[in-house]
Measured scan of single mutants.
Amino acid sequence: AVSDRLIGRKGVVMEAISPQNSALVKVDGETWRATSGTVLDVGEEVSVKAIEGVKLVVEKLE
């Protein structure tokens, strides 16, 4: 799938994300809905860990 190429890519949080709420991230110039197990604020850099349906699963870039 096209989205599989995004695993391992870096992105930027466009809307705050919490474990209860998905929000938008920008990866390679494209906007995607994403979820995370932690709270992520706007502007934080993230890494794509997986794809669940049409959502990216991201975590904060260390």
Rank of each mutant, 00 (worst) to 15 (best):
G53R: 01
T38S: 13
D4A: 11
I7P: 03
S22Y: 10
K49C: 10
V27Y: 00
E30Q: 09
K49W: 00
T38C: 13
R9N: 05
V27K: 02
V46I: 11
E59W: 00
S18V: 07
W32S: 09
I51S: 02
L24G: 04
E62I: 12
R5A: 09
V42D: 03
E62D: 12
D4V: 10
E30V: 08
A16L: 14
K26G: 05
G29L: 05
A50G: 11
R33G: 13
L24I: 10
A23S: 08
T31Y: 15
E15S: 09
A1C: 13
M14F: 05
E45Y: 12
A16W: 15
S47L: 15
D28E: 07
V57H: 06
E52D: 13
T35E: 11
G37H: 13
A50P: 01
A16K: 13
S18F: 10
V25F: 00
N21T: 10
K60E: 03
D41I: 14
N21M: 10
G43K: 02
T35S: 08
L24S: 06
R33S: 14
E45W: 15
S47W: 15
V2I: 13
L61P: 05
A34V: 09
G43E: 02
L40E: 02
R9L: 11
V13T: 05
V48I: 10
T31H: 12
V12Q: 05
N21G: 14
K49G: 03
V25C: 03
D4K: 11
R5E: 07
R9Q: 09
G29N: 09
G37C: 14
T31V: 14
Q20K: 10
V48A: 01
A1R: 12
S18D: 09
T38Y: 08
V39E: 11
D4L: 07
E45H: 12
E52N: 11
R5S: 09
S36Y: 05
P19I: 09
A16Y: 13
S36P: 02
D41V: 15
K60G: 05
W32K: 09
W32Y: 15
V2G: 10
K26E: 11
Q20H: 12
L40D: 03
E52Y: 08
L61G: 05
S3R: 10
W32V: 10
N21H: 12
E15M: 07
E15L: 07
K60A: 07
E59V: 10
S36N: 04
E15W: 05
S18E: 07
E44S: 09
V13W: 02
K55N: 14
G53V: 03
K60P: 10
V57G: 02
V13R: 00
V57L: 08
V46L: 01
S3L: 14
G37T: 14
I7T: 04
A34R: 00
G53T: 03
P19Q: 11
K55A: 11
I7Y: 00
K49I: 15
S18H: 09
G37S: 14
S18Y: 10
G37V: 13
R5Q: 08
P19N: 12
L40I: 09
I7N: 02
A1I: 12
V39T: 12
A1G: 12
A1L: 11
E44M: 14
K49P: 01
G43Y: 04
L40F: 05
A1K: 12
T35H: 06
D28L: 07
